[in-house]
Simulated scan of single mutants.
Amino acid sequence: MFQEIDYATDLKVKYEQLSSQLDALLTGERNMYANLSNASALLNQFFDRINWVGFYLMDDGELVLGPFQGLPACIRIPLGRGVCGTAAETKKSIIVSDVNAFPGHIACDAASQSEVVIPILKDGVLLGVLDIDSPELNRFTKEDQAGLEHLVEVLVKHL
């Protein structure tokens, strides 16, 4: 069902393959939690050098932990707090090269050193965020951000 990703190809091609795999995986399923669970598992398999990948979902005006892969995480994050809360409040993706230098960073896993967060918007409404952490500084690039933003667009079709 899935193509093996050729890691010798460039990053843009890898993200296109990943987005196609996600679309195929989620086609025909309408349950949001099942789809987010499979998306987090697929991303966890795709990425190297990460220690957490998952979703925080909007619930009653704040972000609440959703499906994820990794160590136990913070359960509730107010809008505007930490990287996830800031990305949610601004509805803009954020790459943080060094989370220890980010004002108000919420340390759910002390091993996390860098992070990328992508807002999940459907028809202009914030559903939540995709959050990926790494134990390495400077792990994520603008190419990662662009690839993940496209992946979230594919994901939103199935939510």
Rank of each mutant, 00 (worst) to 15 (best):
F2V: 11
I5M: 06
D10A: 05
K12S: 12
V13D: 09
K14R: 15
L18Y: 05
S19Y: 02
S19E: 04
S20C: 10
L22A: 02
D23C: 05
A24I: 08
R30Y: 10
M32E: 14
Y33W: 10
N35M: 05
A39I: 09
S40W: 00
S40M: 00
A41K: 15
A41V: 13
N44S: 14
F46W: 06
F46S: 05
N51S: 06
W52P: 00
V53Y: 03
V53Q: 01
Y56G: 00
D59K: 15
D60K: 15
D60L: 11
G61T: 08
G61R: 03
V64H: 02
V64I: 12
G66D: 03
P67W: 04
A73E: 01
P78Y: 09
G82F: 02
V83N: 01
C84T: 06
C84D: 04
E89P: 02
E89W: 08
S93T: 14
V96N: 01
N100R: 14
A101D: 11
H105N: 07
H105E: 06
A110Y: 07
E115T: 02
V116M: 08
V117C: 04
I120L: 10
I120S: 01
G124L: 07
L130N: 01
L130C: 05
I132S: 00
D133W: 01
D133H: 00
S134F: 03
T141S: 15
A146I: 14
G147C: 06
G147M: 06
H150V: 12
V154N: 02
V156I: 14
H158Q: 06
L159C: 13
